[in-house]
Design a protein around this nucleic acid. Structure first.
Length: 603
DNA sequence: ACAAACTCGG
């Protein structure tokens, strides 16, 4: 097989950072009888985590020793060279000895050698069996070579070994890693026997393809079928909670993990750190991080990114320094995290230092993500021209998305002239970039340039592009409620409006003036204000307040950036109702408390 | 045979 450089550096699938929990598909809306809780809630105190006893305690997995052993015992593996020497002097080679050496090569990442052995095996009378093929398939998952993978699948069908459990799991994984999740499903549901690894393969596959709801649903099915999830299952499924920002599910999984005795597994702990921070609880994330025995670059990155997301850039930067001090070498993801942290608080000089140290000290290439982070940083800091120059001179091919960040900065800093220039760049690369159309429409609207706006809208319509609705969601009593901007179909709509009207009066007394500049429509101010009041984040916040005890923290997640006026309004609401309100938009958290926001209005 | 972190924009 020919392996080009490009194949080795295959692109990672680009997945949405936040997914909306589809109302009809979320499984926590299943009838109570079908709903087996993973365990009771976690309780926090100063000493750490306590678990309440749940109703299905007896069903919980007991501590499995092998996982903990792996971390503590040091087994010196034989190098592949020695294995090869032993293999070569074998007087009689059979399928088993071939399988052993092929698996050895595949697991040590020596793919070419592995494949060579398969070919060599073909020249003898020996025929590859299910074990051979399960070792070979991961090679093609790694290369995302679905054509080769399918050849093997076909061969297995002819040999009648395609329903083998071992082989089936590799096959599910191979299709999933090649972004063909439907094929994974087909294979999985066609298996005559499934073990915990086959279940895990599909759960992990769903997560890798951004199908988080499906992943959670399958995980639940697995638990209900009494297939006990092991450590690998948890490290696959917890990220799904992180992406969906479903804190209560994540907490339940955490409880399950502790009971199963997987608490010291570094994969799971890192996933939990990430989950808690993405769900808005940075303190819990820190607590788990501090309790870990060892930290690798992944766990450091998770906590650094967590602080970055929450706007604590200085904390993030000092953790990055601490990581280096402890001898953990930052990789390119760690740099993405620290640059993001700088960008969220405007640490321009520090960011340049890190950006330059990547190539000069750590021999890491600047990748698109790093350029994007710096471009974003410059844009947010108002250095629009500098950002423009920077992106133009990038040493990787620029994408519409990097320009989009700048376009957004132009809109924040109200620079229409540059915005038009940037928008043209975007449309040249990607003529169907929705974000750019929407932002430009917004900018024309706020400048009262209705004619240009109408022209742009016509262009959009001709291309058949439609604006994706903004939506927000909130968990109340273990149920997720979604709100779409302007959508009045929620059963509690009357109470929500009543609440908002009441709070509005007080807000105006305290000096709130609606900022209607962000409203896209050419309508009078009164109507604009009404539109603002239909914004999804406001509906979700209001719903949360009227349905929870006084003093409860409100956590809302939104699929796009929080609107400027809503940001002001929620500050007032937090003061008037004496609530802490945490809004997660697509790029960060806003902690509203006593009339101010943790972002310091820098976003 | 299955596992953790990844920028920005709408």
């Amino acid at each position: 097989m020919e392996v080009s450089n490009q194949m080795l550096h295959r692109p990672i699938f680009i997945l949405p950072r936040v997914s909306f929990v589809r109302r009809n598909e979320s499984f926590w809306e299943m009838p109570r009888s079908q709903c087996v809780p993973f365990c009771a809630e976690i309780v926090y105190d100063d000493d750490g985590f306590e678990i309440c006893v749940g109703e299905v305690f007896d069903e919980m997995p007991q501590r499995t020793s092998c996982d903990d052993l792996k971390d503590e015992t040091c087994i010196m593996p034989l190098g592949m060279d020695s294995v090869r020497k032993v293999f070569e002097v074998l007087p009689r080679k059979d399928v088993v000895s071939y399988n052993t050496i092929i698996a050895g090569y595949a697991q040590s990442g020596m793919y070419e050698d592995g494949l060579r052995m398969v070919r060599e095996m073909g020249t003898t009378d020996l025929k590859p069996d299910a074990f051979t093929l399960s070792s070979v398939l991961p090679i093609f998952s790694e290369y995302v070579d679905v054509i080769k993978g399918k050849e093997i699948h076909g061969y297995a069908i002819r040999k009648g070994i395609d329903s083998d459990v071992y082989f089936g799991s590799s096959l599910v994984d191979m299709y999933a890693k090649s972004a063909r999740i439907e094929d994974s499903e087909r294979v999985f549901f066609g298996l005559s026997r499934r073990d915990s690894i086959s279940w895990n393969s599909l759960v992990a596959g769903y997560v890798q393809n951004g199908r988080y709801n499906e992943a959670l649903r399958l995980f639940r099915q697995m638990v209900m079928k009494k297939v006990r999830p092991g450590p690998v299952a948890f490290s696959s499924v917890i990220p799904a909670c992180a992406h969906l920002a479903t804190l209560h599910l994540g907490k339940q999984l955490h409880g399950y993990v502790l009971r199963g005795g997987f608490g010291s597994n570094i994969f799971i702990s890192s996933a939990l750190v990430d989950m808690y921070s993405k769900c808005g609880n940075i303190n819990a994330a820190r607590k788990i991080f501090d309790r870990m025995n060892v930290h690798d670059e992944v766990s450091w990155t998770a906590i650094i990114m967590g602080y970055a997301l929450h706007g604590f850039g200085h904390e993030a930067v000092s953790l990055f320094e601490e990581m280096k001090q402890q001898g953990v070498k930052p990789n390119h993801v760690a740099f993405v995290a620290v640059l993001t942290a700088c960008s969220h608080v405007g640490l321009v000089d520090e960011a340049w230092g890190y950006f330059n140290s990547m190539t000069k000290v750590y021999c890491l290439n600047h990748e698109l993500e790093h350029y994007a982070a710096v471009a974003d940083l410059l844009g947010r800091a108002g250095k629009l021209e500098e950002a423009y120059e920077f992106i133009s001179k990038m040493r990787v091919e620029s994408t519409g998305s990097v320009w989009s960040t700048l376009l957004s900065s132009c809109s924040v800093h109200k620079n229409l002239e540059l915005a038009e220039k940037v928008a043209e760049k975007i449309f040249a690369i990607d003529s169907e970039n929705m974000g750019a159309y929407v932002l430009m429409c917004n900018m024309y609207a706020s400048n009262g340039r209705w004619k240009e706006m109408a022209k742009l809208r016509l262009r959009m319509r001709k291309k058949g592009l439609r604006k994706k609705p903004a939506c927000s969601w909130i968990e109340v009593k273990n149920k997720t409620h979604g709100f779409v901007s302007g959508d009045r179909s929620h059963p509690s709509m009357d109470r929500i409006n009543e609440f908002l009207d009441g709070v509005m009066e007080q807000m105006e007394k305290e000096g709130y003036v609606a900022d209607t500049s962000g409203v896209l429509h050419d309508v009078d101010d009164e109507h604009k204000r009404e539109l603002l009041f239909g914004h999804s984040e406001r509906l979700a916040v209001a719903f949360g307040i009227i349905n929870t005890e006084p003093g409860t923290t409100i956590r809302v997640t939104k699929n796009i950036r929080i609107c400027r006026d809503c940001h002001v309004a929620i500050k007032f609401i937090s003061k008037i109702t004496e609530r802490e309100i945490i809004v997660r938009d697509n790029s960060r958290f806003h902690h509203f408390n006593r009339g101010s926001c943790s972002c310091g209005d820098y976003w």
